[in-house]
């Protein structure tokens, strides 16, 4: 059985690092893994997605519409943007965090209201304030590891040695805080 996980957000939020850690862990656990992401222009503050698929033998690296078992949104409007990729009955984890896009910043349009309600209605989404948790840990950037922790627990992947993966792939001075963050995520 192939599982498909989609991590979406805004360029610069750390979706790529989170999906890298995820894929390396899945590989260590003996799965075939494929992952897809788009680099380049969209990274400059644009909408980004990383797609991870794992199982016995994975063919396509891209999650199709209606093909994701899980959608992890690092920014809540992005959850809505990519919602059509979530399969019926799929699960959503949403960071309760707003990043205004340029049309909103320059006052052309307001940031949409009641996104959390819509997501909970449609997907029974788990809404998480990862920013506050990350700030308590001392670095807002580790919200990506907190969300990864939530994802790991939701997908029953807690048996994998995530600490080891983090130690091997993250700069030394950020290892401990990232381990703390992923562990806290797994308890939320």
């Amino acid at each position: 059985m192939i599982k498909s996980i989609m991590l979406v957000g805004v360029g610069g939020q750390g979706t790529i690092l989170a999906s890298k850690i995820l894929t390396l862990g899945l590989m260590e656990a003996g799965h075939d893994v494929k992952m897809s992401e788009i680099h380049g222009m969209s990274q400059r503050g644009g909408s980004v997605s990383s797609q991870v698929r794992y199982g016995k033998k994975v063919l396509s690296p891209v999650i199709e519409i209606g093909g994701a078992d899980m959608l992890v949104a690092f920014e809540k409007m992005e959850a809505l943007r990519w919602l059509n990729h979530l399969k019926k009955g799929g699960m959503a984890v949403v960071n309760d965090y707003e990043i205004e896009s340029m049309p909103i910043i320059i006052g052309k349009i307001d940031y949409p209201e009641k996104i959390n309600e819509e997501l909970i209605n449609k997907t029974n989404a788990k809404v998480i304030d990862a920013v506050s948790v990350a700030q308590e840990l001392g670095n807002v950037k580790v919200m990506n590891m907190i969300l990864l922790g939530v994802l790991i627990k939701s997908m029953n992947l807690t048996d994998i040695d995530w600490e080891k993966i983090i130690r091997e792939n993250i700069k030394k001075k950020f290892i401990e805080i990232n381990i703390k963050a992923i562990n806290i995520g797994m308890t939320i």
């Binding site: 805004v10 809505l80 919602l83 399969k87 349009i109 940031y111």
Partner: peptide, 21 residues
């Protein structure tokens, strides 16, 4: 048709074009 997805009809999504950093 594509695979069946959750109800994704929404008018709320606003464009997020790339910007100068």
């Amino acid at each position: 048709e594509t695979l069946e997805s959750v109800d994704s009809e929404t008018e709320k999504v606003i464009a997020r074009p790339p910007t100068l950093c």
